[in-house]
Simulated assay, not measured.
Amino acid sequence: MLIMTIIFIVSLMIPTLVFSLSLLLFHRMNLDRNKMSPFECGFDPNNQARLPFSTRFFLLAIIFIVFDIEVVLLMPFPILMATSLSFQHIMIFLLFLLILLLGLIHEWNEGSINWLS
């Protein structure tokens, strides 16, 4: 019973000590105008909030995320091929690669991945 009480007291004291130390260190910070102003990717937050946004860049970022996730899905296939080489696994892998290739061709024909224009 005594050990449980000591553990309980210590478990209350450590977070209290850490919280008190964080408050003490927070008040030592030098607060000036530059440190108090928010920073958002180089944009001045006090100006117009609705800046024009490039939808072309947004679509390119979405395409990158989709293809990045597909690459992550492709990573286990060599291990699967090394452990159990079956016709069904090969066909699934080739179908997945075909879908990726068709998506890439579609994006290329649409002009979404043309970086020159």
Rank of each mutant, 00 (worst) to 15 (best):
P38G: 00
P45R: 03
R56T: 14
D68M: 14
K35D: 11
D68L: 14
I69F: 10
V72M: 08
L73T: 09
T55I: 13
R56I: 11
T5V: 13
I63Q: 05
L23Y: 08
L2V: 11
R28T: 15
L17V: 12
S84K: 14
F57S: 08
Q48V: 11
F53T: 15
N109S: 05
F8H: 06
M36K: 10
M1P: 11
E70T: 02
I79T: 11
D32M: 01
F96H: 12
L2W: 10
L60A: 08
A82I: 10
M91T: 05
A49T: 12
S20G: 15
D44C: 07
L59V: 11
C41Y: 11
I105Q: 03
F96A: 08
L51D: 04
P76N: 03
L73P: 00
M13Y: 12
G42W: 04
V18F: 04
D32P: 00
G103R: 05
D44L: 01
F87R: 14
P78N: 00
E107D: 08
A49R: 06
V18E: 02
M29S: 09
M13W: 10
H89R: 14
Q88P: 03
F77L: 04
D68C: 14
F39D: 06
S84R: 08
L95M: 11
L104E: 03
L12E: 09
P38V: 02
S117Y: 12
L80Y: 09
P52E: 03
M81V: 14
H27T: 12
H27E: 10
N46H: 12
L17K: 03
F77E: 02
L21W: 10
L24I: 15
I92E: 10
L94G: 01
F39K: 15
I14L: 12
F8D: 05
P52R: 13
L102D: 01
V10F: 08
P45V: 03
C41P: 01
P78W: 01
T83C: 08
L85T: 06
F96M: 14
L102A: 13
I90Y: 05
I69P: 02
M4H: 12
L94W: 05
E107F: 10
R50P: 04
M29V: 13
L85C: 02
T16Q: 06
L60Q: 15
F58W: 09
L21T: 09
R56M: 01
D32H: 04
L24H: 11
D44A: 03
P76W: 07
M29E: 12
P45I: 04
I7E: 10
